[in-house]
Design a protein around this nucleic acid. Sequence first.
DNA 1: ATTCTGACTTGCT
DNA 2: AAGCAAGCCAGAA
Length: 124
Amino acid sequence: MRPEFVDAVLGIAAMVPTGQVLTYGDVAELLGAGGPRQVGRVMSLYGSEVAWWRIVRADGTLPDGLAERALPHYEEERTPLSALGLSSYRVAMRRARWFPSDSDLARIEVLSRKLSEPAAGMEQ
DNA sequence: ATTCTGACTTGCT
DNA sequence: AAGCAAGCCAGAA
């Protein structure tokens, strides 16, 4: 896992506004590199460094075990949720999904620019 | 090189 | 709503 990719993923995660979320796939798409699973990998390894609960699955759920830990944050941030069962919930993606503004996209572009550079030490 | 696995996603039944 | 397959990209063995 290239450190630039890790930085870029964490960088985007850090930009998500309070009360809003992005999906793993969204992050990969904004970055124009890797895929949802790669983003998941970064979050698994380094997610604790950022507001990890703002990166969720496409259907608004979180991986096993994380939902309980994330709930207090969602309540504090007033993140839109929808009940899924008696003790389960999911983020209401229609309302909670973050759509970066043009200036946000510009900052993201700066982050992703580094990813298009060739890996160090591998040239010809 | 091959295979398995995973904080994933989409489409089809 | 739920289950399944395939696609996906990297790491690890």
